[in-house]
Computed example of a mutant assay.
Amino acid sequence: MEGGSQRHGSLFDGWNSPPNIVTYVRIVLVVAFLALYVASGRFGSEDLSLRWAATVLFVVAASTDKLDGWMARKYDQVTELGKLLDPIADKLLILAALIVASCFNEIAWWVTALFLIRELGITLMRFLVIDSGGSVIAASKAGKYKTLFECFAIALLLAPIPALVGLETGPAHIYSLFTAAIVYIALILCLYSGGEYLYHTLLKR
């Protein structure tokens, strides 16, 4: 929820809490995912099994987003550091995947650029809010839906279905069109939630 900005303790209070440790693990998983994705090649052309492994690891890493949030709420271990690192972990995973996908020509660079501008801009704003003495504003509902659609879109993009059925076949084109539609929905939610965050942040200044 986009709540009021009350002052809290140090940013590093509760840095070693179990939910934050899960977040640290998610960040480490990004590195492993990237290694598999890059090694698999475009549409898994270098190694299809590595592409499947990258897809599975992405889904696992993305799914743990719910785990640390659930743990933090259940055991009353919500921290300022957790609220900051949780979306950063999401952004590292998602933006890294998009950049590699664009390098492989699996997604247009302009799409990745818009995601990058929004995500990096909001992350910078979060740091500015902290630097000015405010508390981190938690993700809104639109932001959470954005993350859900981003993860779904990238999972579809990563799954080497077109390579399995043949890149130039009808089913592959239908799959690619469906994936593109989910990507554009995620992009719309990304830009909307970014504007919403900007509005709420400036409103409270």
Rank of each mutant, 00 (worst) to 15 (best):
A163P: 07
W70T: 12
G133W: 03
L34G: 12
L198K: 06
V38N: 09
I88Y: 08
W110Q: 01
L92C: 11
K74F: 00
I107P: 08
L128C: 04
G121D: 04
Q77K: 08
I154H: 10
I21R: 04
V100C: 07
Y192H: 01
I154V: 15
A101W: 11
W109C: 01
R205I: 11
Y37F: 12
S17N: 04
D86I: 04
I122H: 00
I107W: 10
A153K: 14
I154Y: 09
N16I: 10
A101T: 10
I188N: 02
I161S: 14
Y145R: 10
Y199V: 09
E168I: 10
K91I: 10
L116E: 04
T147S: 06
V78G: 00
D76M: 10
M71W: 13
S49H: 14
A108S: 15
Y145I: 09
L98F: 14
A89P: 03
A180F: 15
G44S: 07
S176N: 09
V136C: 06
G170Q: 13
A181S: 15
V31C: 00
S40L: 06
S45G: 14
F58A: 02
D131V: 02
T201N: 10
L167R: 13
G3V: 05
S5G: 05
L189W: 02
T55D: 09
T23A: 02
I88K: 00
I137K: 08
A181Y: 11
A101H: 13
I137W: 01
L36E: 06
L81E: 00
V100W: 02
A53E: 11
D13S: 12
A72Q: 01
